[in-house]
Each structure stands twice: as C-alpha cells, then as structure tokens.
Amino acid sequence: MKKYDKQIAFMLFSLTVIFVLIASINKDFLDWIFARHHNQLSWYIRPLFLLPFCYFAFKRSWAGIMGTIFLLTTSMAWFPVPETINAQVKEFLQYEVDYLTGDWGVGKILITLLVPFSLTALALAFWKRNLWIGLTVLVLIAVGKMTWSVTSAGDAGKSIFIPALVGLFLCIFLIYWGFKKAQKKNDNQNNLKI
C-alpha cells in the first residue's frame, strides 16, 4: 500500500473536491446533505475523525489523511433525517447554509481558509511527532469553531458546544494515550537493539 500512497491520496482528494463542488452547485444536493446533518449524531462523530487524521499523519500516510478528510466531509450525510429538530440546531444549520451559499468576499475566503490551514498545521505537528504542538492545534481548532459559531450565529452557535467539547476531550485523551503507547513501544524496541 505504501507504494501507492500518494496516488490513492490524490484519488481521495479528488473525490472530496468533487463532493464539495457538487454540493456547492446543486442546491437540492446541499439541502439533502443538510437535512441529514440536522441529526446531531453527525455532530458528535465529526470531531472524532481527528483521531484517524492524527494517526495517519503520525504514520506519514497521505492516503490515510485524505481518506479521513473524505469521510469527514461526507459524514454530514450519513445519518437519517431526525424526526425532531432542536430549534437552535435548525437555526445554526440554516446560518451555515446561508454562509456557504451567500456572497463570497475576501474576508469570508480568508476565514474559510483557516479550515485547511488548521488541518495542515495539525497534520504537520503529528507528522513531525510533536504531541504538544498537535494537541495545542487541536484545542485551537475546537475553540476557533466554537468562537466562530457564536460570533457568527449568536446563541444558535452554542448548539455545537457539547459535541465539540466531548469530541475535543475524547481526542485529547486518546491521542495522548496513543502517543505515549507508541513512545513506549519505540523505547522497548530501542532497548532490545542494545
């Protein structure tokens, strides 16, 4: 698999771009996706995609990173439309749809570019195997998302706080545990060589 890592990564990146392009030009498809994104299960699993993302960055697998991004992007549509929808959830997601389908100026483009830049910083931290920078970037991503949500959508933006915080704490715990386990395994292998 390592031999085809970059080719597979490019294919997965292309599929992600195609998914985003279709959603951005086909309003019916975008509405179909967001109807399913009202299911808050998708809100709870989305932060957990940062676990395999960090793992594959640590393992230096382009295909793993791009596969995780593809799954993260499409996960909005994985769940059925909920029978009941919290009013704040509905209001916040309507804000997100309006944001995505509204006019795009320089400021909006720059704010939106924070998403790929922050994911790049996160991948780079774990690619370089720096746990503390990686965890710091992870916290900044969560705080940034929560801050943007509230400053942009008002009280409705608070609806992401619990899923974001649950995901953040789970990610920190599991990444820290996994990193320490990998370090211990590496130390044991180094001791055997001596």
Results as ranks from 00 to 15, higher is better:
residue 3 K to D: 11
residue 8 I to C: 10
residue 9 A to C: 06
residue 9 A to G: 13
residue 13 F to A: 15
residue 14 S to F: 12
residue 15 L to G: 10
residue 17 V to Y: 07
residue 19 F to T: 06
residue 23 A to R: 06
residue 29 F to A: 09
residue 30 L to W: 10
residue 30 L to Y: 12
residue 34 F to P: 01
residue 34 F to W: 07
residue 35 A to M: 11
residue 36 R to Y: 04
residue 37 H to I: 01
residue 38 H to T: 04
residue 39 N to K: 05
residue 43 W to G: 01
residue 44 Y to E: 00
residue 49 F to D: 01
residue 54 C to P: 01
residue 55 Y to H: 10
residue 59 K to H: 11
residue 60 R to P: 04
residue 62 W to H: 10
residue 65 I to K: 01
residue 65 I to S: 01
residue 67 G to R: 00
residue 74 T to C: 12
residue 75 S to R: 04
residue 80 P to M: 12
residue 84 T to D: 09
residue 87 A to L: 09
residue 87 A to G: 08
residue 90 K to E: 15
residue 90 K to V: 06
residue 97 V to S: 08
residue 99 Y to R: 03
residue 104 W to C: 05
residue 106 V to W: 09
residue 109 I to L: 15
residue 111 I to V: 15
residue 112 T to S: 15
residue 114 L to E: 02
residue 115 V to T: 08
residue 116 P to Y: 02
residue 122 L to V: 00
residue 122 L to A: 02
residue 129 R to G: 02
residue 131 L to Q: 08
residue 131 L to V: 03
residue 138 L to C: 05
residue 141 I to F: 01
residue 143 V to S: 10
residue 144 G to H: 06
residue 144 G to Y: 04
residue 149 S to T: 02
residue 151 T to Y: 14
residue 154 G to D: 09
residue 159 S to Y: 11
residue 162 I to C: 08
residue 163 P to E: 06
residue 163 P to K: 08
residue 167 G to L: 06
residue 167 G to N: 08
residue 169 F to C: 07
residue 170 L to Y: 08
residue 173 F to G: 10
residue 176 Y to Q: 12
residue 176 Y to A: 11
residue 180 K to D: 07
residue 180 K to Q: 13
residue 186 N to R: 14
residue 187 D to A: 12
residue 188 N to R: 07
residue 192 L to I: 14
